[in-house]
Design a binder for these strands. Structure first.
Lengths: 144, 144
DNA sequence: TCTATTCTAAACTGAATTACTCAACTATTA
DNA sequence: TAATAGTTGAGTAATTCAGTTTAGAATAGA
């Protein structure tokens, strides 16, 4: 039940990009340095965030990355789903990527005890992460 | 953020053992058949549950497994921690297996935005799973 | 236009984990 | 003592994780 390093690094990178929002572009080596993230690995992550429509980038001498949307319109749930896939602890309770169980004996019965509990767990997780934006998140970081 | 098959099979096996609680021993092949679990894999799981003190077993002709504690004293949280380790989404917010972050720039600052959110997520998960017992769980299954 | 800089894209790698499987045991009972 | 049933440990194929490498394409400035 762990989030991957990718998700963690993505959130840390977005912390930097949020602090920089509305100002100059931020380069990957700067993000890597400030957050202690291996730069080649960070590249992959920034690319994924870009392809998912969260970041814009420019190449060349004064290139870099920037947030494409206001920080209060991006939730941690969105970010984590990009890097780690669905939040649900088992496939059959995912709302964004539902998968039918193949071998569960309760499938036919209409109600499955595991599904009931895990549905609750999924909702509890999503409730937090889908309502927590990058602005809330970066606010925590800069408050002090 | 998924639970393993081990955890899922463990919960399904415990559903059978809970229904059988206070009655005769239940054999692994019977559990395997009813829940469609590969028997050799199930063995491993039952053994882990036994070593963790949840099950008793007897060998020989009329052997089998049984719950060693009343179903309302075993929570899903306990079971999942046995098979999958801590519930926390990152090591630095685990209460049962805390691990200090090595490279996080917020370590020194006394407050980390990731830790704050993920702590909330951990608590939300634990709140559900540590308060849901096998009795609640099996009640769901037999109610209909 | 040349060149240094920066992002892009994909393949690659070593280590760990997952989900099983197998084989050889030991204990129990009829 | 034979059959049954749990115990233990090792093995394995497939996948995932975390990170590296390499080659390329866009951009700005000289």
């Amino acid at each position: 039940m762990k989030f991957s390093k990718k998700s963690e690094y993505a959130l840390r990178a977005l912390l930097e990009l949020t602090a920089q929002y509305g100002r100059a572009l931020l380069q990957r080596h700067e993000i890597a340095k400030r957050q202690h993230i291996p730069i080649e690995f960070l590249e992959q992550i920034l690319l994924a965030l870009k392809n998912a429509g969260l970041l814009a980038s420019r190449r060349g001498v004064s290139g870099g990355y920037s947030l494409i949307k206001p920080p209060d319109e991006i939730t941690l749930g969105q970010v984590i789903r990009i890097l780690d896939g669905p939040l649900a602890p088992i496939g059959c309770v995912s709302k964004t990527a539902y998968q039918k169980c193949s071998d569960c004996p309760y499938v036919k019965k209409g109600s499955c005890p595991i599904q009931d509990v895990m549905g609750g767990v999924r909702n509890a997780i999503a409730e937090i992460l889908d309502n927590y934006t990058l602005r809330d998140f970066a606010g925590q970081a800069t408050r002090q």
